[in-house]
Design a protein around this nucleic acid. Structure first.
Lengths: 224, 224
DNA sequence: CCCTTGGCGCCACTCAGTGGCAGATTAGCC
DNA sequence: GGCTAATCTGCCACTGAGTGGCGCCAAGGG
């Protein structure tokens, strides 16, 4: 990151720094006071930029809270573009997702955990998070459709597969958070300590594997 | 409907009528001028109620545009509660969904088609529609989990199944609309004529069956 | 050193959505 | 039918997110 930063022109570096500052401060404020209880004016005052600048960086108040999640999806897309596609497509999606999670640093999973906790207790953010993931996944599938020469009007299989892989991710993320018993921002740091380090994303990856493994059996699920 | 209406107290009947009037007028205005180009004040003026009353009927501007879609989900939930659960759960979800579509009248599929057309060219409505469907489906799955004694923390299969069935629905609805070549509100009535009657929802049901049928094969989809 | 270009701050504005209160309308009861 | 109490509605003022426009300042390039 520092290398990439140095290579960028001064103007871009400044932009990136305010972007970062906005995301960090937003997460801090939202965790501290709650999402709806924090106004954009407060955030913008704290970072000392104008509201106009904020909207040049992020399209909405919701999006700035989910910067960590956006990083994940960017990584996922990058991973999918880099890797070459052969074998079962579901495995491809699974592996590129795992690779994305693995590739992001230890600092990321701290921020991501905090973000997910905030999302879990803020319906408006949950909504936006869902929407973001669906949008990204749809883009991903569209790319794959082109590569495979599939037309979703005639063959919906890939579309379904994409949704399924996203569903697995959502189950995994949900169980990851609820398994941690994260309830709110006022949880003592003692518990936060447990989450830190590689354990956080290692556990997340375990949950993802678990969810993907459950896919074949889910189809045949039968009631009494 | 008329029977049920007559049974209701006067106050409730009036309430229902304004609800209906709001939904009808909203759809007409949105189709005519576009969603963002129509303000709530205009809608509220046209129906001759106050803005305050509007928000007592619908939680948001988006929701009033999707009254027909809400009817579908209500029917789906009712169908799932009425029917008893045995055999493959995926079939249960599939059959209750089909039954819901079938059960709603010919007037419904006219309104639903118009609604979907509007949604297709209005991102904000597409977002809300997705959110609505996910919410309903999540409620449905939670109920089923209780009936089956499944804990989604340990067993994510049902959760995955719910998402998969919803995905099939979304593919079906999408292809149904795009297959009709619906582009905007200015399409001549000649084309609208083709959609009318049982053919509209019959085609929709065909698309749904098609999508559900594609599920087993989607898992094994493999690239070159 | 100057000129161009791209951000940025500031201001005024729109519009969705909310809270509060006064007035009307209905339901239930005598 | 008349009275009271519970609802519902309309009106008004207000918050806060998001946008458009313009002047300005700082950065890149010669």
């Amino acid at each position: 990151m520092t290398d990439a930063e140095r290579a960028l022109p001064l103007r871009e570096r400044k932009k990136l720094r305010t972007r970062q500052a906005l995301a960090d401060t937003a997460l801090r404020l939202f965790l501290d006071k709650g999402f709806h209880e924090t106004t954009l004016d407060e955030l913008v005052d704290a970072v000392e930029v104008s509201k106009r600048t904020f909207f040049r960086m992020y399209p909405s108040k919701e999006d700035v809270a989910m910067a960590a999640e956006l990083e994940l999806w960017d990584a996922h897309v990058a991973e999918a573009e880099a890797r070459e596609l052969h074998g079962p497509v579901l495995d491809f999606l699974r592996e590129t997702l795992i690779a994305a999670v693995t590739g992001l640093g230890a600092d990321w999973d701290r921020r991501f955990l905090a973000t997910r906790g905030l999302i879990a207790r803020t319906p408006a953010l949950w909504d936006r998070s869902l929407l973001l993931s669906v949008t990204v996944q749809s883009r991903l599938v569209t790319d794959l459709e082109i590569k495979l020469g599939i037309n979703s009007r005639e063959d919906v299989r890939l579309r379904l597969l994409g949704e399924l892989s996203l569903a697995a991710w959502r189950c995994a993320a949900k169980n990851w958070i609820s398994g941690r018993g994260y309830q709110g921002p006022r949880e003592p740091m003692r518990k936060l300590g447990q989450w830190k380090g590689p354990g956080g994303s290692a556990e997340l990856i375990r949950r993802v594997e678990e969810a993907f493994d459950a896919i074949p059996d889910s189809l045949t699920l039968t009631a009494g």
